[in-house]
Amino acid sequence: MKSFTLDHATDTDSALSALRGGATTIAGGTNLVDLMKLQVETPDRLVSIRRTGLDTIVEDQDGLRVGALVTNADCAADQRVRTSWPLLAKAILAGASPQLRNRATTGGNLCQRTRCGYFYDTSQACNKREPGSGCAARDGFNRIHAVLGTSEACIATYPGDMAVAMLALDAVVLTQGPNGAREIPIAEFHRMPGEDPSRDNTLKPGELITAVRLPAPTGGVQIYRKVRDRASYAFALVSVAADVSMEGGRIARCSLAFGSLGTVPWRDRAVEELLVGETPSPALYTKAADLLLKDARGFGHNDFKIPLAARALAATLHEATQG
């Protein structure tokens, strides 16, 4: 670990001013500190935002506003979340461990970095860690890597669960920055690697996440299916977040997001359009999966994710529509 200074911001303004001075935000520290120990990240100035008071959950007529500092544990336990946006609670509880969820925050979770083993290992080439050095994962051990949204430069997944649920729920990320406040639809928050995998999201320098807004509840059946190598405490191989409403035996409305499948939390509106108005059937699920995965490409060890995603989608739609 390199030496660094740590300041505690007491409100949003003092946090922003520290960020303008070149500081890096630290919230729960469950991801950042690990990366600093390995010197994958080497900030020399940290500003902790844990005392900024951005840790409340507020409900109004537009929906729910979850502060950036609300811990994953508190968010998942919130009665409003559990009742009206159960998908979010389910996704959070499918992630990490109770200890980590007690510490991890809403903003930090959105910004968590990939779990690509080559990214964490400074003896290896990685364009995300060191732009231009190459991508060791592409021809390496890439079992956990993405099959959608990849580029020549990087094939790493966004590994988290919470953001996948938020994507299905049409959440909006609220930020404050040097140029004032912004509202970023979550679908535009994470960025695909393209030629510059070093930037995971569309936050601008000096910008701080202050909250995430969830629109009014849909009342649909909400399911989070996380497929993984062991029953708990493992990142998803593929996950599916679904919010589905039925009417007269047909799918009336549906939103679907996928985790650990693409380089970003993945949503494909064309798949949803294909499903709406249809009667659920195995054949329909196959059609939806074919459309979802038409551009999917494996890199060897992760080829299995393509059939797995199709199966996870079928299982989720089956469950969501048979009840």
């Binding site: 083993g117 290992d121 003896s123 051990f141 062991r230 029953a231």
Partner: peptide, 23 residues
């Protein structure tokens, strides 16, 4: 193992999976 340079890819308990309680 990465068979190109011989390094161990899953060198921690997050990626080398031993059973957890739920298993």
């Amino acid at each position: 193992f990465d068979l190109r340079d011989g390094h161990l890819v899953n060198h921690d308990l997050a990626e080398y999976h031993v059973p957890v309680h739920a298993d």
